[in-house]
């Protein structure tokens, strides 16, 4: 009788809460690729017209938003990228692909691209083991579990700009809290401060990003851990597996889809990284922490080279798209088959 899945069934990996949902609810107008969400073929009585109307009705707001704030700006950026345009007045000077050539030849852009790649790799390399370790610890029954989970998640809730300003103040050379603490134990930071020296600025940004996004990783991993069936633990325990063996042989393999999804989100986030860097270092010192996003803002709003900025944004879009597709194709593809198998098992 009901053909609409409400939000409660959509929690990732978590068992659907029985109070608000029905495991055999068909989902209208939205694809659900999440494990443990029950789904079966639609079995409505009314005709296809009504169904179409319903779909239109529900999809329309999202489509309108998507069109207005995603499709139109992207199309506009592509258009601007073919012109030499100062930010106001009509598009007059068509330059073809020249803006793209100028971006790809620009050492500042290449530097920014490298920083993005370093951040992509560093984020995953640091946050994956750290987040996993903390999630496994927090998954054990212990006192103050809720409070600990909250504390770990707090940085993620904080607005990026506020977190950036706080860290900026802490990094101030000599006067800032970090230098004060270092000097009180007889150490000293770099002379120019962490965010002011060429070697330290990028590691400092990565450290702040880790602090900021580790909570997100942990929450996702914890959610994934809830989805590991209790029976598997029981069976392993009966077979005499130690805690370590259970984590290595049961938990982590079962967590695979969650880990891969998180790594995907982390990668996309790192490629588009802007606000934290902008507040913390402004891409400086001397472009030592620039990203593709800060490059295009600099070209656009500071130098009024809107054509070049748009070309850079299209390139950023393509880079992110290609990496996302490759990731989906080569790393996430097994999840797609794996979830089908698991889904069958659950909905049986």
């Amino acid at each position: 009788m009901i053909d609409v899945a409400d939000e409660a069934t959509a929690q990732m990996g978590a068992p659907a809460s029985p109070a608000t949902s029905n495991p055999t609810v068909p989902v209208a107008g939205r694809a659900s690729a999440r494990p443990a969400t029950g789904r079966s073929a639609g079995r409505r009585g009314s005709g296809p017209f009504r169904k179409g109307l319903e779909i239109t009705l529900f999809v329309a707001p999202a489509l309108a938003l998507l069109g207005l704030f995603v499709v139109v700006p992207i199309a506009r950026a592509v258009q601007i990228s073919f012109f030499k345009w100062k930010g106001y007045g009509d598009f007059e000077r068509f330059v073809g692909l020249d803006n793209y050539r100028r971006v790809l030849e620009n050492p500042e852009f290449i530097e920014a691209f490298q920083h993005n790649m370093i951040i992509v790799v560093a984020s995953i390399a640091i946050q994956l083991p750290l987040g996993l370790a903390i999630a496994l610890l927090l998954n054990r029954k212990m006192r103050g579990q809720g409070i600990l989970r909250t504390i770990i998640f707090v940085p993620y809730v904080l607005s990026e700009v506020i977190a950036g300003v706080i860290w900026y103040q802490m990094f101030v050379p000599n006067e800032g809290i970090i230098d004060t603490v270092l000097s009180s134990v007889g150490l000293s930071g770099p002379k120019q401060g962490f965010t002011g020296s060429l070697e330290w600025a990028l590691p400092a940004v990565i450290a702040v990003l880790t602090w900021k996004y580790l909570g997100m990783a942990i929450i996702l991993f914890l959610a994934g851990l809830q989805g590991v069936p209790e029976e598997l633990y029981e069976a392993a325990q009966l077979d005499g597996a130690s805690w370590w063996q259970i984590q290595r042989r049961v938990t982590i393999p079962m967590l695979g889809p969650t880990l891969r999804t998180w790594a995907f989100l982390s990668m996309i986030g790192s490629l588009q990284l802007f606000d934290m860097v902008w507040v913390l270092t402004g891409g400086g010192p001397a472009n030592a922490t620039s990203t593709m996003a800060t490059f295009l803002v600099q070209q656009g709003t500071q130098r009024s080279n809107y054509g070049i900025a748009s070309a850079a944004s299209v390139i950023l879009f393509i880079v992110a798209l290609v990496m996302a597709l490759l990731y989906q194709r080569f790393i996430m593809n097994r999840d797609n088959t794996a979830t089908v198998v698991r889904r069958k098992k659950v909905s049986r």
Binding site: F171, P173, Q192, G193, S197, T281, P285
Partner: peptide, 13 residues
């Protein structure tokens, strides 16, 4: 110290 990350006019630092 830290002149590369110093801002021009905002605040005591």
């Amino acid at each position: 110290d830290g002149f590369l990350s110093t801002v021009a006019q905002k605040g005591p630092s």
